[in-house]
Write a protein that binds this DNA or RNA. Structure first.
Lengths: 215, 215
DNA sequence: ATCTGTGAAGCACTTCACAGCG
DNA sequence: CGCTGTGAAGTGCTTCACAGAT
């Protein structure tokens, strides 16, 4: 069956809420409660889950642990994912230093850059390699995902190389509309894009006057 | 008129492509060419633009400069936007150091943290202030957008405070499903969410064997 | 001839509403 | 009775296809 992409985008939210519930020691949760926590309608949660199977018990709800396991399996979060970073400038270093990846099973295992004074540097136990060696390195130790943090002008080339290396998932931080062949999944994650659409809604309504707590 | 939210999300992509075209010295562009560059159908571009007016010339296309100006005006990108960062841990520092905001008119003008050993520190010409002073500081110098980079457990509280301070746009880096009242716009921008849905598509198809350039 | 702007058709996603199980 | 799972209805978005302007 062909699952609507928006459904796939919501599943990680469900796993996250379920993790919290699990930490709170809860055994069972209804679509109603899950929906309230996430700001999603109960019907939508039930419909989304129904694409993959029948995980709930009528009259009771969903077993937290079981549903969490199922979603992990469905999303492929029951294994480790290897990632390669390209571009270790300011942004690239920040990405390397980001601690949110590894607890979720995402590991940056290679870092590349084109600049001679960065190649060979050690950053968090990784040695920065030459971008020109991408194909050689990744042919010996393939990765699942490429993270692109190079300047806009080089981004498409880097993406093309990654695709040639068999990388089928790309996280693009560069401000370009990159092209990838069918079967390769690219996500734009520049914060500026999010801001530039948000301003549409902010521009009209005035900043309210604030009655602040005073000294 | 009520504009579909997806349309608003695409407009920043259009402005970006138009900026490139402008740099290339192009005067006129058709929906066809713009579409090819962005991976969007020409009909969609025309339809999207038609919500806001009639910017093209039949038989010719769109004047690059004029359309760019219009889109800037529509999105509110013809002015500066003031932002406050909350949380100057590792992630917060990276956000402060990010150079992509200011060229697009987004400026971080305040930084807050709750930890005593961070309060008072200077980072890039900004003095880190106490999160407890958020209301006082923002009542004197309001901001348009709040950037939340605190640990998950504090994020909802910080968001509530920001909303109380009249902030109506929030960029949330914390891994929680935050709740905001109507009229407040919140965008989740954690990279892990993007990865966790991408893996759904990656998990099934095998990593292809690569024929790499060898020595 | 070329390319926009747009109703109308088509497709995708969400919500409803209820049968059916625990 | 409570809550899931799901066809059917409803809503929103995309694409078609063509009239009309240059």
């Amino acid at each position: 069956m062909e699952i609507p992409p928006v459904v796939i985008d919501r599943l990680p939210l469900y796993t996250r809420a379920l993790s919290s519930l699990q930490t709170e020691g809860r055994d069972v949760v209804s679509s109603q409660e899950l929906g309230t926590r996430l700001g999603v309608t109960p019907a939508q949660i039930r419909k989304d889950l129904s694409y993959f199977g029948r995980f709930g018990k009528q009259g009771r709800g969903y077993n937290v642990q079981k549903l969490l396991d199922e979603l992990h399996r469905i999303l492929g979060l029951d294994r480790q994912w290897r990632m390669a970073l390209v571009g270790v400038g300011k942004l690239g270093r920040a990405i390397l230093g980001y601690e949110g990846f590894s607890p979720q099973g995402f590991r940056i295992v290679e870092a590349f850059d084109a600049s001679p004074d960065r190649i060979g540097q050690r950053i968090n136990s990784l040695i920065v390699k030459d971008t020109r060696d991408l194909e050689n390195v990744l042919s010996k130790a393939p990765v699942d995902v490429g993270i692109v943090a190079v300047p806009a002008e080089f981004a498409q080339d880097v993406i093309d190389t990654l695709v040639k290396c068999g990388v089928r998932g790309i996280l693009n931080y560069a401000p370009i509309a990159a092209h990838v062949p069918d079967g390769v999944h690219l996500k734009r994650i520049e914060p500026v894009l999010a801001l530039q659409s948000m301003t549409y809604y902010l521009k009209s309504s005035p900043r309210p006057t604030i009655t602040a707590a005073r000294g």
